[in-house]
Every structure is written in C-alpha cells, then in structure tokens.
Amino acid sequence: MAQEVMIRVNDLGVSYRMDLNKNTNLKEWVIHALKRQNQYRIFWALRHVSFEVYRGEVLGVIGHNGAGKSTLLKVISGILKPTEGDVQRGGRIVPMLELGSGFDMDLTGRENIYLNGAILGYTKAQLDERRDAIIAYSELGDFINMPLKTYSSGMLSRLAFSIASVIEPEVLIVDEILAVGDESFQKKSRARMMELMSGGTTVLYVSHNIGQIREMCRRVLWLEHGEIQRYGDVTGVCDAYQKGI
C-alpha cells in the first residue's frame, strides 16, 4: 500500500560547537580572546539519521538520556537547523508544549487559549470555532476566566493538552508528557491520542515508558549516542532495548 510520507529525514546530522570556556558575557569573551583561549570542540548530537514517517502513523522514539531524542524532535519541528542532511515535512507540525512554556501566567485561561493557539500556528477562525470544545475538554469550568497563576499544575497541563490536541494537527510531537493530570484525565488523554491517530494525525512520541510505547506505536526508532541503534517493528526494537538495560 502506497502511503503518504509526512516526514522524511535524510542523513541528518547536528553538531554543536562546544565552547570550552563557557563565556556568557562580553568581559570573559574579551579576556579569553586576548589570551587566545577561546577554544571549541565539535560535538555531534545526531549523525547519519534517516527515516520516514507516514500519515496516521505513531512513531515511538526511545533511547537513553542524552541519546539525541530531543535534538531530533527540535530539528523536525524546525527549531534547530541541521548541520547536514535535511528534513522534509508534509504538513504543519505542532509540538505539545511542556508545562508553562508559551503560557502567560497573568492572563486568564481563555486568553491563553488564543495566545497559545497562535503560538502553535492556528488562525483566529480555527480558535474561535474550537474554543468551547477546548474549554469543555480541559474540564476547567469557571477557572477558565481566572489568571493562570491561580491554577494547579494538573490544571495547567490539562489546558496545554487540550489546546494542542482538540484542534487536529497534522503532525503532533509529544515529548514525555502524556502522564498529565489525574488518572481519569490520563485515560481520557490516551483515548484522545488514539482518536487523533485514527483520524490521520501523525504522532512522534518520545518516552522512557516502554510499556506505553508498546501500547501506542507500531514502529520504533531507537537512538543511541546520536545514531540509529535500531529502527523497525515495535516488538523487536523494544525487546532488544529492554534486553540491553
């Protein structure tokens, strides 16, 4: 079956120039420059990474801390420019934001829906249309008209999840935050994820929770030291990963 490719990653490489002195101000930089001590080391966070993700697919990304998972997601969403290789995207990519980033604590929940929605790339018309659904879905009730600083962290993450998921994105990036809210909201959010995927949303899903990965994904990408360790069917990769631990 010919499937539509939503993301194509071609021989991707990202290198950092590691500043050994860690200059953070002009004074230090000048001093080190004068002493000729401004040294750098090249560090490859990702190298020779190639894969494809199809429409409606959920790709799990696993690997130990520092394996390059977050770097990969940043390159895919366009935040980082790759040093070599490229990424082709077939649709708009919406990251599910971590707690707080993109939220403004002094504004009300309702105002934050528009602010956050605009940051995620939605238009005013889209937001007007889905506003009530977002409010209902987040289960915030009257709190929606209160400033965000009065919210609990569970309420914040419920709002964040609702904004990112109620409007159907083409590609959704989920970095470790499905454990949102209390148990009933977790169940609800997992159900919503399933619904999105069957509705054609492509999901890139990063987690250390292998159980969840097995449950949600068909294929898995295992990164280690910036390179692909294994890439393929969920059972094979997860078994190998867990054996290695």
């Binding site: 969403s77 935040i79 990251p95 934001l97 993109g102 940051i119 790339g121």
Partner: peptide, 9 residues
C-alpha cells in the same frame, strides 16, 4: 527562551 526552544516561528 522557553518558547524559542520549543516552538518554531
């Protein structure tokens, strides 16, 4: 900084 690290615009 928080936004720049998370969302592309």
């Amino acid at each position: 900084a928080g936004l720049i690290k998370k969302v592309y615009m």
